[in-house]
């Protein structure tokens, strides 16, 4: 893979993520994540697969601290995310875009306002209050809406959109942050198969175009094989497979998901 043209080293440092011995227990003695260690280089789409309840969501939410890790280290942009708090945490969160299973749009706001929510980490409170976003941000938001195919929906309310359209807004909102890392938590699990493929295509193409490393949780193995550059298989809170899609064999799937009949 070719490196980015300008300041490849700097960008690589900014966009790589190292997770060291990450543990999470919601209740003491019942670990959801067991010593997860992971290194993600500066680009590519990484799919995390595994059965429900295996800690995929927890892992992704630990990265931007929507869930508090119990122990371990998360190095991003040269800082340990686990040690940050308050304004420092917010400053680093604005560099991590997130896409959600249920889209998590503010339903009563318009599409463009939802996209502009991605700038809230950058703009002062009074601008958010008065909706006085910078002209450059508004222009950028329109470009992103065009890019996700919703240019004509800018002034519609988010609750008038279909599921696929809402997820497109969610993607535009994540990109609006100009992120150095995108996290997507089951972005297609609430969508029909055709829309799922379209959404994955969109996420993959945006990630490739902007050279943003993207971590996607999914339980659809076919989608993972089709779009991911690297697949991580998780089972019972630990990583049991890590490699390119072609290396993922049925024996690995057995280890990840257990059982046998479903592979036929």
């Amino acid at each position: 893979m070719a490196t980015a043209t300008q300041a490849p080293d700097a960008r690589k440092r900014e966009r790589s993520l190292i997770i060291n011995k990450l543990c999470k227990e919601y209740r003491a003695g019942q670990p959801v994540l067991r010593d997860v260690s992971l290194e993600i280089e500066s680009r590519g789409l990484i799919a995390i697969i595994g059965p429900s309840g295996t800690g995929k969501s927890t892992l992704i939410r630990c990265i931007n601290r929507l869930v508090e890790p119990t122990s371990g280290e998360i190095l991003f942009r040269g800082r340990d995310m686990v040690a940050l708090s308050g304004p420092e945490l917010r400053t680093i969160r604005r560099h991590i875009g997130m896409i959600f299973q249920e889209y998590n749009l503010v339903e009563r706001l318009s599409v463009i306002e939802n996209v502009l929510c991605g700038r809230l980490g950058y703009v002062p409170v009074w601008r958010a209050w008065l909706r006085k976003f910078r002209a450059a941000d508004i222009e950028h938001a329109f470009q992103l809406l065009d890019a996700v195919g919703l240019g004509d929906f800018a002034n519609q309310r988010a609750d008038q959109l279909s599921g696929g359209q809402r997820q497109r807004v969610g993607i535009a909102r994540a990109l609006m942050q100009e992120p150095d890392l995108v996290l997507a938590d089951e972005p297609t699990s609430s969508l029909d198969p055709k829309t799922s493929v379209e959404i994955m295509e969109l996420i993959a193409s945006r990630a490739a175009e902007r050279k943003i490393p993207t971590i996607v949780n999914m339980h659809n193995v076919d989608l993972a094989r089709r779009f991911a550059d690297r697949i991580i298989g998780m089972s019972k809170g630990a990583i049991v497979f890590d490699g390119p899609p072609l290396a993922l064999k049925d024996s690995h799937l057995l280890e990840i998901y257990g059982g046998e009949g479903w592979l036929e």
Binding site: R131, F133, E139, A141, F142, Q143, A147, G151, A154
Partner: peptide, 16 residues
């Protein structure tokens, strides 16, 4: 890549 499509559109946004 898709930005040209709507280049002619006014890029103003007002909440109301």
């Amino acid at each position: 890549m898709t930005a040209e499509i709507s280049a002619g559109r006014p890029r103003q946004w007002q909440r109301f």
